[in-house]
Structures are given as structure tokens and as C-alpha cells.
Simulated assay, not measured.
Amino acid sequence: MKKSIFKDVIVFLVMLAIVAVVCWFLPDSIPFHFNEQGEADLVVNKWFLLLGTVIPYSAYIQFFRKRKGGK
């Protein structure tokens, strides 16, 4: 059980590191939401994108992690 948790933490940290490297090369402010005229009405700091690491990690949990019970 501990080996599985260790592997999950390593996978999450690798994903977080990849997103951090990508964020390093982005401009300081990123348009995040656009209105119907095509103008950015929500601009966020580039490091806000680190919160998006949860999305690929949840896909990893759903599709690639071994389930208990043999399935």
C-alpha cells in the first residue's frame, strides 16, 4: 500500500514540475476568460496555472492506476 502512495506522489510531483517549467517561459499575465466581444475579462498570474495540475493527475488516477479488487 505504501508503495502505491509513493508512486502516486512521484507522478503528481513530476506533473507539477512539468507545469512549473512551462509556466517559467510564459508571460507574467495570462488571459483566462474572454467575453462575447473577444476581449479578455479575466487575467491571471502565470503561476495560477499550477492549479491545473489536478486535471491530468485525476486522469491518471482514473485510467492508469491499478484498482483494488483485481479490476
Rank of each mutant, 00 (worst) to 15 (best):
R65N: 08
L49A: 12
M15N: 07
V22Q: 10
I61A: 06
I18S: 10
K66Q: 14
Y57K: 02
A17P: 10
M1I: 01
E36V: 14
N45W: 02
A59T: 05
F25G: 13
S4Y: 06
Y57C: 04
I55E: 10
F25Q: 11
M15A: 05
G70N: 07
N35E: 08
I10S: 09
F64P: 06
K66C: 11
H33W: 11
W24N: 13
L51P: 05
A59F: 15
C23P: 05
I55H: 12
A59L: 15
K46N: 10
S4N: 07
T53F: 05
E39D: 09
L50I: 12
A20W: 08
K46D: 14
E36A: 06
V14P: 03
R67S: 13
F34T: 02
P31K: 01
K3Y: 05
I10R: 09
K7T: 00
V19M: 10
V21C: 13
G38P: 05
G69W: 09
F34C: 02
K71W: 10
N35I: 00
S4P: 03
V44G: 07
S58E: 05
C23T: 07
R65L: 14
W47R: 02
P31D: 06
F34W: 15
F6N: 03
K3A: 08
D41E: 09
Y57P: 03
F12N: 01
V14F: 12
K7W: 01
D41I: 01
Q62K: 14
A17V: 15
V22K: 06
P56Q: 07
L16Y: 05
M1P: 04
L13W: 09
F6P: 00
Q37P: 06
T53S: 15
L26R: 03
L42Q: 09
S4H: 07
F32Y: 14
G38R: 01
P56A: 11
K46W: 13
V19Y: 03
F48I: 01
Y60H: 11
G52Y: 13
H33K: 11
A40T: 04
Q37F: 11
F63G: 04
Y57F: 15
K46F: 14
L50G: 08
N35L: 01
L13M: 14
G38V: 06
P56K: 03
G52A: 14
I10Y: 08
M15S: 07
M15F: 08
K3I: 00
V19A: 04
F64L: 15
R67M: 11
V44A: 11
G52D: 12
V19K: 03
I30C: 11
S4Q: 06
S29D: 13
D41P: 11
K2F: 00
W47Y: 12
W24M: 07
N45F: 03
